[in-house]
């Protein structure tokens, strides 16, 4: 959980792509207090970052009791490290930051009565043990029926790591008593 890898900066130096903006993802955790999100975003724009999207996992809490937030932004590679430093200087806890190359996308559906109550932990563990990052999430429950709830996860996965990611999801689901509907990768044209 406390592993803080900051590989975006070194990536930027290595590829030296000058002024071309590149997409980056930063994972933060914020205290559940008014104004926290806005305060966390200021260092980004102040340092030349262009916000692409903010995924505020309201209702979920990190093990520290904070709210996880995923920020996608674009900036020239040489600015990225400065942005992360500025965030940390502003007291924001940056869990992970990097210009990671997630070349593949995989979708899974998790099924089970506890799928929504325990989602934060599930997502956190997928992201921390697989080479994957959550792109979007959708929940479905039917009121007034005894049908199980479902969650659809779209994961961006590092190229060539789809099988490993699915194995992580499978193990986690088995541990939590959930069912996984996996995608059929081949032959589904």
């Amino acid at each position: 959980m406390s592993a803080q890898d900051l590989d975006g900066g070194s990536d930027a130096e290595a590829d030296g792509s000058g002024e071309m903006p590149k997409p980056h993802t930063i994972r933060l955790e914020l205290a559940d207090e008014p104004g926290q999100l806005l305060a966390a975003l200021a260092p980004i724009s102040d340092n030349g970052g262009n916000l692409l999207s903010i995924f505020h996992e309201r209702g979920n809490l990190t093990p520290r009791g904070h709210i996880p937030v995923e920020v996608d932004l674009e900036c020239p590679p040489d600015r990225f490290e400065r942005i992360v430093d500025a965030l940390r200087d502003a007291g924001v806890n940056v869990i992970r930051a990097g210009a990671e190359h997630f070349g593949e996308e995989v979708m899974v559906i998790l099924v089970g009565d506890t799928v929504d109550s325990d989602l934060s932990d599930t997502l956190h563990r997928i992201e921390s043990s697989a080479d994957a990052t959550l792109q979007d999430l959708s929940l479905s429950a039917r009121e007034g029926t005894d049908e199980a709830s479902s969650a659809r996860l779209r994961l961006a996965v590092r190229s060539g790591r789809v099988d490993e990611t699915l194995a992580v999801v499978r193990d986690l689901a088995a541990e939590k008593g959930l069912h996984v509907v996996e995608p059929l990768a081949e032959g589904s044209q």
Binding site: M107, V111, S140, E147, S149, V181
Partner: peptide, 18 residues
């Protein structure tokens, strides 16, 4: 047996089915 309507709903929202 463990594929509820909710899973099919979510799949359909994304142009998929089970």
């Amino acid at each position: 047996r463990n594929v509820p309507g909710t899973a099919l709903d979510l799949a359909a929202e994304d142009g998929r089915t089970v």
